[in-house]
Write a protein that binds this DNA or RNA. Structure first.
Length: 1138
RNA sequence: AGUCCCGUAGCUCAGCUGGUUAGAGCGCUACACUGAUAAUGUAGAGGUCCCCAGUUCAAGUCUGGGUGGGACUACCA
C-alpha cells in the first residue's frame, strides 16, 4: 500500500481519463458495478440503438452522457442497472451506402447482383463503424454492455419481431390496403414519413401551375344555372401545381361553408366570353394584373379582343354546399375509370379546402393525392385506375413515373423532367405541354410559374410522387385513447414534450404503414395464396418449420429448409443455421389448407418497428427470458433518454408496440434532450463544416470536463451552443479548484502522515467551521439527490460546482489553512483533516455519475491510503445518505452572515486602501436582534481572522447610535391592504427616526390611508440599521458594519511584522526551501521597522519557521526588501542544517 | 400550416408559488492578496428582462397578441 497521497505536477484531465480507463479495463470495474448488485432491485434502462453505418458526432456524447449519468446514479443508489448496447442494422441508409459502394442501383438488385450477395454486403457494411462507435463509448466513459449487444439482424432478434407481428395479426390489428404514399420512382421505393422529413427534403421549386377550367354540365339545374346561361359557358376553376395529375382528375372538392362567386369575363388566351366559379375571397387574387372590375353588362360587353385589360363582372354568390353534386365535363378525356365511371366528374365537399391560394376549388385526383383519395372514397368517387395487360387496376402513371399508353399524347413521357437522364431531358415538360394544350382548348384560365416547397427523395434528390401503393398497416388509430391514457402515466422531462409534442401526435395517430419495398430488413412474415384469399402469419421458427413440412407434403416445395432446426434449442449453432432475410424466406413456398401454394408478401417491415421491438427482442422474448418481461423484471423501462428528434421515432414506436401488444407503457421516465449546435447557434452540418469531432474534443479536454460542460451549461432539453471555450472554463473553474483543494489536502496530510486511522471525531465535537461545512455537505447531498431523482442533471452539476468552488475551496479551505500547517492542537488538526477528507470523498461519490474518471481517481487517491471504504472504485460505493444530525441550518445561515459581514469589512478596507495585512482594532455591527447577536458572537472569531481585526463589538440600539431605515414588507401588507399599498408606501418612505423607534417599541402602527384604517404590525416592516454616525459604514441588505480605522503604534508594528513575514515567505519560496525547512534570519532596517520586528519577534519566528532572528550589520549575503517608505530593509536567510 | 422549446449584461446561463436595488460565471477595467499560486479576493463599468396590450396595489414572473431563432410534424391542391 502506498504511504502517501499522490501529488501531481498539474491537472491533466485527458491523462487521468486514460489512466483510469486502464484501471477500469484491467479490473473489470464496470462489470463489477453490475454484478455487485446481483440481489438488488433492478433499474431498467433501454439503450436506443444507434445506426452503425454512420460516424458518431459530438451530440452523441451529449445524449450518452445523460444516459450514463442516471445509470451510474441508480447504481450508486443500490440498484442493479443492466444495460445492453444495441445496433440498429437494417434500413435504407445501409442499403444506400452499399449501393453507392458497389456502384449499383436498386434496379440492379436481382440482376447484376443477387439479393443474397446484396444482403451479405449490407451485413458487412453495417458493422463497419462498430469499432469507432465502441471506441467513443469507451473513451467518453459511457458504461454499457458492449460485449453482448442486441443486433437487429440476428435471427433471434428477428424471430421476436415476427412474434410481435404475429400478436398484432392475431388481434386483427394488421391489414392490407392501398394508400397514397410518397414514392420515389428513381429509388423505386415508397418513402416513410420519417424519410420525407429528413432535414432538407422539402425544397423550394418552381413548377408550372395551371388554373384549369372545368366546363359545368348545362343540362343540370344548380345555383348558378340561370346566371350562367346568359353569359356563355360556365366553368369551375381549380388550381394545380402538378398539371400531370389532371388526366387523372375525377372530382372537384369545395368547402361547404366557403362562399363562391360566379364571375363573367373573357379568357385571356382565347378571348372567348366565359363565366367562372371560384371562392369569393380569391376573386381579387385570380383577377389581378390584366383584369379590371366592372359593374354592368354593358361595360363587360364593351370588351374587344386586343384591349389591354380584361373586364370582369361578379354575377352571383352561393355557398360551397350549393355546388355539391354539380357534374362537369372531363377535362382531358383520355380514358375513363375502370370502375364506377358514372360517379366521376362531380363536385364534392372536403374539410381540407382553404381559400389561402388557388381558387377554393380543389382539383381531386384520387390516385395521386392522399387527401384526394380519402375524400373521393368518402363520396364514392372512383379513382382514375385502368386495367393493365393482366387485368390489374393501375393508375395512369407507371412505377417508373411515366405516362401509360392510355394517355396517348404523352405516353411514355416522365411526368417530371427531373426523372430523365441529363442528355434526354425534353425541352417541354409534360406539365408545360398540358398547359399549352389547355390554353389552346379554352380550358386554361391562367398558367404561371409557382414557387412552393415540395418533398424530394432524400437519396436521389429528385422530387417524389404521391402514388398508390399496396401496404401492410398496423391499426394504430383505433388505439389512440389507450395510447394517450398510458402516455399520461409517463414522466416526461421536460413535461411539455410529453404532453405537447408527443401527446398531440398520439391524439392524431394514423395507422402505421409497415411496408417497405426494400431488401435489407426483417421480412413481413405473411404468406398468401395467389388470389389473396388465404393468408398466414408466421410468428416463430418452429411454426415456419411445421408450415414448411406441410408444404413439402403438399408438394409445393421440395425440401424443408428448416429441417435441421431443433425445437427448444437456443444455442447459437441451432439459430445460426437459419437466416430470415428476404433472400432466404422468399424462396419458401407454403401451402394453403387445400394445398395451393402460398408466397410471402414481398415487403419488409419498417425499421422503426425493429427498434421499437427492442424491449422484447433484445431478450429473444418469448422464446427465451420469458420471465424478464412477464414478471416486469426488464420491462417496462424505468428510464430512457434520446434526443427530441426521436419523439415521433423511437419514443413513438416503443410506445405503440407496447400499447398494442402488451397494453402497457414501454418506459416510465423519459428525458429528451435538445440539439447540440455550434457556438453561434447554428446546426452542425457537413456543409457548413462546423461539426465538432467528438474524439478530438475528448482527447484535448478529457471526457470529464466535456461531460461536465455539456451537462451544466444548459438544461438538457434546451439546445446546447457548443463552445470549446466553455470546456476550458469548466476545467479551470471546477476541476482546477477541486484539484487544488485535493493538492492542498495531500500536501499537508503527507507531511503530517494523516491516514484517517485514528478514531473519527464525532461531528458534534468538531469546531464550528467543520460542523458548518459538514452541514453544507449534507444539504448538498439532499439537494443533489432530489435533482438526480427529478432527472435534472444540470441542477445537480451546478450544485456540486457551487459547493466546491464557493463553499469548500473559497471559504472552508481558505479559513482553515492555518489549522493544517500551524496547529499545536492535535485534535483540532485531526478534525480539520477528517472534515476535509470527508468532503472530498463525498464530492467524489456524488459527482461520479457526471465526471466518472476524475472522481474515481480522486476517490482512489484518497481511499488507497486510508482504506476507509471497502470499495476500490467510486462507482461501487453507495450514494451518501443525508445525516439529519449533521444538518444545522442555523449554523449555515450564521455562516452566510459571517461571509457577508467579512465581505463588507473587506470592502471598507479596500475603499480606505488599508491592506488586510494591517491589523485594525475594532469592527462594529449593529445588533438587529438578540438571535442575531448570538449568531454573530458564535462566528466572530472567523470573521475577525478573515478580515484581520482585533475585536468585534455588537452595538445594542440605545436609540441614538444607529440611523435606521424602514421599508414596507410588500408581501405581507399586500395581502391585507393591497389597494392602499401606494399610500402606505409613500407614508413609510417619509417616516422619521422617531416613528421608527416608536413602531419598534409598540410593535404596531395605525393610520388612515385613502379613508381606510390601516393597522400594521412590526412584521409588516423591514427595519435595518443604515448608518452609524461618525463611523465608516457599509451595508448589504439588512446587514451593516462599521470599521474603526485608527491605527495605533502597536497595530502599526504588527502590520509591519506581517509585511516582514510576507517578504520572508516570498524569499523562502524563491529559494525553493521546503515548506518544513527551518531558517536563521539576519536583518537590519530603519529604526521604526526594527522596533516593530523586535516587538513581534516570536510571532515572526513562528510564522516563517525561524530559529533565530538577529538584528545585525554583518551580512554574508543580503537581499533588499521593501516594507514601507521609512527605508531599506536588508535580510539574509540561512537554512538550518539538521 | 400545426405542435413544442427558446428570447434576461459583450458571451454562457440562474431567477421558486407575482413583492419594489434583476443575479452568477466568463470577458473587460482598476486595485489587492499570496507557502492552494498558471490559483484567489474586492470593486467598477455593462440591462428598454424581444415588442405591444391586459390582469393586479404590484409583472422578468400570469394572460392574450405579435416578433425573432430553433426543433418536430404535415395530405398542401
Amino acid at each position: 500500500m502506498p504511504q502517501k497521497y499522490p501529488e501531481y505536477p498539474g491537472l491533466n484531465l485527458p491523462k487521468i481519463a486514460a489512466e483510469i480507463l486502464k484501471v477500469w479495463e484491467e479490473q473489470h470495474v464496470f462489470e463489477a458495478s453490475v454484478t455487485n448488485r446481483d440481489k438488488c432491485p433492478s433499474f431498467v434502462f433501454y439503450e436506443g440503438p444507434p445506426s452503425a453505418n454512420g460516424l458518431p458526432g459530438i451530440h452523441h456524447v451529449m445524449g450518452r452522457t445523460i444516459k450514463d449519468i442516471f445509470c451510474r446514479y441508480k447504481t450508486l443508489k443500490g440498484y442493479q442497472v443492466k444495460r445492453k448496447a444495441g445496433w440498429d442494422t437494417h434500413g435504407l441508409p445501409v442499403e444506400l451506402g452499399v449501393e453507392k459502394e458497389l456502384g449499383i442501383t436498386k434496379e440492379d438488385i436481382g440482376t447484376k447482383i443477387s439479393v443474397d450477395e446484396y444482403n451479405q454486403a449490407c451485413k458487412k457494411a453495417v458493422m463497419r463503424y462498430t469499432d469507432i462507435w465502441n471506441d467513443l463509448t469507451t473513451k467518453m466513459g459511457y458504461w454499457v454492455d458492449k460485449e453482448n449487444p442486441y443486433v437487429t439482424y440476428e435471427t433471434k432478434y428477428m424471430e421476436s419481431v415476427w412474434w410481435l407481428i404475429g400478436e398484432l395479426y392475431k388481434k386483427d390489428l394488421m391489414y392490407k390496403g392501398y394508400t397514397i404514399q410518397p414514392y420515389s420512382p428513381k429509388a423505386g421505393t415508397g418513402l416513410s414519413s420519417h424519410e420525407i422529413n429528413q432535414p432538407g427534403c422539402y425544397k423550394e421549386v418552381k413548377d408550372t401551375s395551371v388554373v384549369a377550367m372545368f366546363r359545368m354540365n348545362t343540362n343540370q339545374k344548380h345555383a348558378f344555372s340561370l346566371a350562367a346561361e346568359q353569359y356563355g359557358e360556365a366553368f369551375l376553376l381549380a388550381w394545380t401545381t402538378t398539371p400531370w395529375t389532371l388526366p387523372s382528375n375525377t372530382a372537384l372538392t369545395v368547402g361547404e361553408n366557403i362562399e363562391y362567386a360566379l364571375v363573367a369575363t373573357y379568357n385571356q388566351y382565347t378571348f372567348k366570353p366565359i363565366a367562372v366559379v371560384l371562392a369569393k375571397k380569391l376573386i381579387a387574387y385570380q383577377f389581378g394584373k390584366g383584369f379590371h372590375s366592372v359593374e354592368t353588362k354593358i361595360e363587360l360587353d364593351a370588351y374587344a379582343v386586343g384591349d389591354k385589360s380584361i373586364p370582369f363582372l361578379v354575377l352571383d354568390n352561393c355557398f360551397g354546399k350549393d355546388l355539391v353534386g354539380i357534374k362537369y365535363e372531363q377535362l382531358l378525356p383520355y380514358c375513363l375509370p375502370a370502375e364506377n365511371p358514372e360517379a366521376a366528374f362531380q363536385v364534392i365537399s372536403g374539410d381540407f379546402v382553404t381559400t389561402e391560394d388557388g381558387t377554393g376549388i380543389v382539383h381531386t385526383a384520387p390516385t395521386f393525392g392522399a387527401d384526394d383519395a380519402r375524400v373521393a372514397a368518402e363520396h364514392n368517387i372512383p379513382a382514375m385506375l385502368v386495367k393493365d395487360d393482366n387485368g390489374g387496376l393501375v393508375p395512369l402513371v407507371d412505377l417508373q413515373g411515366r405516362f401509360r399508353k392510355e394517355v396517348s399524347d404523352y405516353a411514355g413521357m416522365y411526368v417530371k423532367n427531373e426523372y430523365y437522364e441529363a442528355s434526354e431531358v425534353p425541352e417541354r415538360s409534360v406539365d408545360v405541354l398540358i398547359a399549352i394544350k389547355l390554353k389552346e382548348d379554352n380550358k386554361a384560365f391562367k398558367v404561371e410559374k409557382y414557387e412552393h416547397s415540395y418533398p424530394h427523395c432524400w437519396r436521389t434528390d429528385k422530387p417524389i410522387l404521391y402514388y398508390p401503393l399496396d401496404s401492410w398497416f398496423i391499426r394504430v388509430s383505433g388505439q389512440k385513447e389507450t395510447m394517450v391514457a398510458l402516455n399520461n402515466t409517463i414522466n416526461w422531462n421536460p413535461t411539455s414534450t410529453g404532453q405537447g409534442r408527443f401527446g398531440k401526435w398520439l391524439e392524431n395517430a394514423n395507422d402505421w404503414n409497415l411496408s417497405r419495398s426494400r431488401y435489407w430488413g426483417i421480412p413481413i412474415p405473411i404468406w398468401s395464396t395467389e388470389d389473396g384469399k388465404e393468408k398466414r402469419c408466421i410468428s416463430s421458427l418452429m411454426e415456419l418449420k411445421e408450415a414448411c413440412h406441410h408444404a413439402v407434403s403438399a408438394g409445393v416445395m421440395k425440401v424443408n429448409p428448416l429441417a435441421n432446426f431443433k425445437e427448444n434449442d437456443m444455442s447459437a449453432e441451432n439459430y445460426d443455421q437459419i437466416d430470415l432475410h428476404k433472400h432466404h424466406v422468399d424462396k419458401i413456398i407454403l401451402a394453403s389448407k387445400n394445398g395451393e401454394p402460398m408466397k410471402r408478401e414481398l415487403d419488409l417491415i419498417d425499421v422503426w418497428f425493429d427498434s421499437g421491438a427492442m424491449p422484447y427482442a433484445q431478450w429473444h422474448y418469448p422464446f427465451e427470458n420469458k420471465e424478464l418481461i412477464d414478471n416486469n423484471e426488464a420491462f417496462p423501462a424505468d428510464f430512457i433518454a434520446e434526443g427530441v428528434d426521436q419523439t415521433r421515432g423511437w419514443f413513438y414506436t416503443l410506445h405503440a408496440i407496447s400499447t398494442l401488444v402488451f397494453g402497457s407503457v414501454a418506459y416510465k421516465n423519459v428525458l429528451s434532450n435538445g440539439l447540440v449546435l455550434d457556438k453561434n447557434g447554428l446546426k452542425m452540418s457537413k456543409r457548413l463544416g462546423n461539426g465538432i469531432d467528438p474524439f478530438e474534443t475528448l482527447e484535448k479536454y478529457g471526457p470529464d470536463a466535456t461531460r461536465w460542460y455539456m451537462i451544466t451549461n444548459a438544461q438538457p432539453w434546451d439546445n446546447l451552443k457548443f463552445d470549446a471555450e466553455g470546456i476550458v472554463e469548466v476545467q479551470r473553474k471546477f476541476f482546477g479548484t477541486l484539484y487544488n483543494t485535493y493538492s492542498f489536502f495531500a500536501l499537508y496530510a503527507n507531511i503530517d502522515g494523516f491516514r484517517f486511522d485514528g478514531p473519527t471525531i464525532p461531528v458534534a465535537d468538531r469546531p464550528e467551521i467543520d460542523r458548518w461545512i459538514i452541514s453544507k455537505l449534507n444539504s448538498l447531498i439532499q439537494d443533489i439527490n432530489e435533482a438526480y431523482d427529478a432527472y435534472e442533471p444540470t441542477k445537480a452539476g451546478r450544485l456540486v460546482q457551487d459547493f466546491v468552488t464557493d463553499q469548500l475551496s473559497n471559504w472552508y479551505v481558505r479559513l482553515c489553512r492555518r489549522r493544517f500547517w500551524k496547529n499545536d492542537d492535535a485534535a483540532d488538526k485531526r478534525s480539520a483533516y477528517q472534515t476535509l477528507y470527508t468532503c472530498l470523498e463525498q464530492v467524489a461519490i456524488i459527482s461520479s455519475p457526471i465526471a466518472p474518471f476524475f472522481m474515481d481517481q480522486l476517490f482512489m487517491d484518497l481511499n488507497r491510503i486510508t482504506s476507509k471504504s471497502p470499495f476500490n472504485s467510486v462507482h461501487h460505493c453507495s450514494f451518501p445518505t443525508l445525516n439529519e444530525n449533521e444538518l444545522d441550518r442555523a449554523l449555515e445561515s450564521r455562516m452566510t452572515i459571517a461571509q457577508r459581514l467579512s465581505s463588507l469589512a473587506l470592502g471598507l478596507r479596500k475603499k480606505e486602501k488599508i491592506r488586510v495585512r494591517q491589523p485594525l482594532a475594532q469592527l462594529l455591527v449593529p445588533a438587529l436582534s438578540s438571535e442575531f447577536s448570538q449568531s454573530v458572537r458564535e462566528i466572530q472569531d472567523l470573521i475577525l481572522s478573515e478580515v484581520n481585526i482585533k475585536s468585534l463589538r455588537l452595538i445594542e440600539d440605545d436609540g441614538t447610535m444607529l440611523v435606521k431605515n424602514i421599508k414596507p414588507n410588500f408581501k405581507s401588507i399586500g395581502k391585507k391592504y393591497g389597494a392602499q399599498m401606494k399610500g402606505i408606501s409613500s407614508l413609510v418612505a417619509g417616516f422619521s427616526q422617531e416613528i421608527i423607534r416608536q413602531i419598534e417599541q409598540e410593535g404596531h402602527w395605525v393610520c388612515t390611508v385613502d379613508d381606510a384604517e390601516v393597522t400594521l404590525e412590526l412584521a409588516d416592516f423591514e427595519i435595518s440599521a443604515k448608518d452609524i454616525p461618525g463611523w465608516l459604514v457599509a451595508n448589504d441588505g439588512e446587514l451593516t458594519v462599521a470599521l474603526d480605522i485608527t491605527i495605533t503604534e502597536e497595530l502599526r508594528a504588527e502590520g509591519i511584522a506581517r509585511e516582514f513575514v510576507n517578504r520572508i515567505q516570498n524569499i523562502r519560496k524563491e529559494k525553493q526551501f521546503d515548506v518544513t525547512d527551518r531558517i536563521c534570519i539576519n536583518y537590519s532596517s530603519s529604526p521604526a521597522i526594527e522596533r516593530a520586528i523586535e516587538a513581534n519577534q516570536s510571532y515572526i519566528c513562528a510564522e516563517v519557521l525561524a530559529d533565530e532572528l538577529v538584528l545585525t550589520t554583518q551580512f554574508a549575503s543580503q537581499i533588499l526588501i521593501d516594507i514601507d517608505e521609512s527605508g531599506d530593509t536588508k535580510v539574509d536567510l540561512q537554512l538550518v542544517t539538521k
